[in-house]
């Protein structure tokens, strides 16, 4: 079985915090229920529209194969059975930066990933960042609940 790096249910709190800049892409701000993580994510809202107040499950996985075979980095076509089948919106990208933010009383870790230029920033407790490594290939899977 594939080992998921992160899984939680998020509630969308805000769209485009700095104003709308792009036609097809919206930056969403969301907060998770279980781990109390906050997230900024660029979503192609043209193909997957989202609204404030939407709840969705977000999963980060290292591979899409159900048996946990690591991702080769090359894209194989075809309609194989995969993790993606259960989700509505799937992106592929790379973790490029891990940094810490120590403004508050407790330290938070920020994880940055880029899905071909669509960025994600996941901020939360350091304990949630254990599985992540720099330059890791990531699949982001989303499903509205």
């Amino acid at each position: 079985m594939v080992e998921l790096l992160f899984e939680d249910i998020f509630t969308l709190t805000r769209l485009d915090p700095d104003g709308k800049k792009f036609d097809k892409v919206t930056r969403i701000e969301a907060r998770s229920e279980q781990f109390d993580m906050s997230m900024q994510l660029d979503v192609n809202t043209e193909v997957y529209p989202l609204h404030v107040g939407d709840k969705f499950t977000m999963v980060l996985a290292p591979t899409l194969s159900l048996d946990g075979t690591p991702d080769s980095g090359y894209y194989t076509q075809g309609q194989r059975k995969s993790l993606a089948d259960k989700f509505e919106y799937v992106m592929h990208g790379k973790l490029y930066k891990i940094s810490e933010e120590s403004s508050g009383p407790n330290v938070k870790v920020e994880l940055y990933a880029s899905f071909g230029g669509l960025l994600m920033m996941l901020k939360g407790d350091p304990s949630n960042a254990t599985n992540f490594e720099l330059d890791q290939r990531l699949f982001l899977l989303m499903r509205k609940v």
Partner: peptide
Amino acid sequence: IDLPTPALIKPIELWTGKQ
């Protein structure tokens, strides 16, 4: 040329200009 994995896999395969 090695075609990269699309940035958007679902609902449709889409590649971005950055790719």
